[in-house]
Amino acid sequence: MTTASYFFGIAAALLVLFFVVEMLRRRRLRERHAVWWIVAGILALVIGIFPQTLIWAAGIVGVEVPTNLVFFVSLSILFLVCIQHSAELTHLEDKTRVLAEHSALLNERVSVLESALQEAGRKDAK
């Protein structure tokens, strides 16, 4: 790889980390959602600064082409992000259902009370 590609990798990793931290700071991203992005950014930064680490890790895992290890780890991180978001979505759907049921029960109570008041008003009018 050329020196420019190393610098590009380091700059991209630093840019990812900067955006994640900035989104955390502005409260546009919650900590539990930022964990995997920070892990990915740090891994990319380590590999950008020390490219031999990728070759060493590929040798340990038994991957012949080191870039295939990068794709596998990237895909694994995205998979974990998807699982995390699916779990969060399921939790939010359950909360929404409970809130809708609670709202429907309150609406029914209000309707019963309004009809009782109208009934009492009719009796008083007679």
Rank of each mutant, 00 (worst) to 15 (best):
V65G: 03
A13H: 03
I42L: 11
F7G: 14
F19H: 13
R109A: 01
D94S: 13
P51K: 08
L105V: 10
V112M: 12
A34G: 10
P66K: 13
A58G: 05
E119Q: 13
F8T: 10
T90Q: 07
G62P: 11
H33R: 11
F71E: 02
A87C: 05
P66F: 10
R32L: 04
A116F: 00
L75T: 14
V20M: 07
G9S: 13
I42P: 03
L54A: 09
L78R: 05
Q84S: 14
T90Y: 06
V61I: 15
R97G: 02
N107G: 01
V81W: 00
R26E: 13
L80S: 04
A11W: 07
V39I: 15
P51D: 12
R26F: 06
E31C: 07
H102D: 07
F79C: 09
I42V: 15
L105S: 10
I55K: 15
V16Q: 04
F18I: 02
F18R: 08
L54K: 11
V21Q: 05
A87Y: 04
V46Y: 00
E88H: 03
E119N: 12
A125W: 08
G121E: 03
L17M: 12
D94Q: 14
Q84L: 09
N68M: 09
E93Q: 12
L75H: 01
A44D: 00
I49F: 12
V61L: 04
F8C: 03
F71L: 11
V65Y: 14
E88W: 01
V112D: 03
C82N: 11
S111I: 06
S103Y: 05
I49R: 08
R97L: 02
D124I: 15
V81C: 06
A100Y: 00
I77L: 14
V65C: 02
F50V: 15
H85A: 13
F72V: 13
I10C: 12
A104Y: 09
S76M: 12
F8W: 04
A34H: 03
A44N: 03
A125I: 02
L80M: 07
I83F: 11
G59S: 06
E108D: 13
F7H: 08
E108S: 15
V35I: 11
R28C: 00
V35C: 01
T96N: 10
V20Q: 10
S115H: 11
I60L: 15
L99K: 07
S111V: 10
D124V: 15
L14W: 00
E119V: 04
F8Q: 07
I10L: 07
T96Q: 02
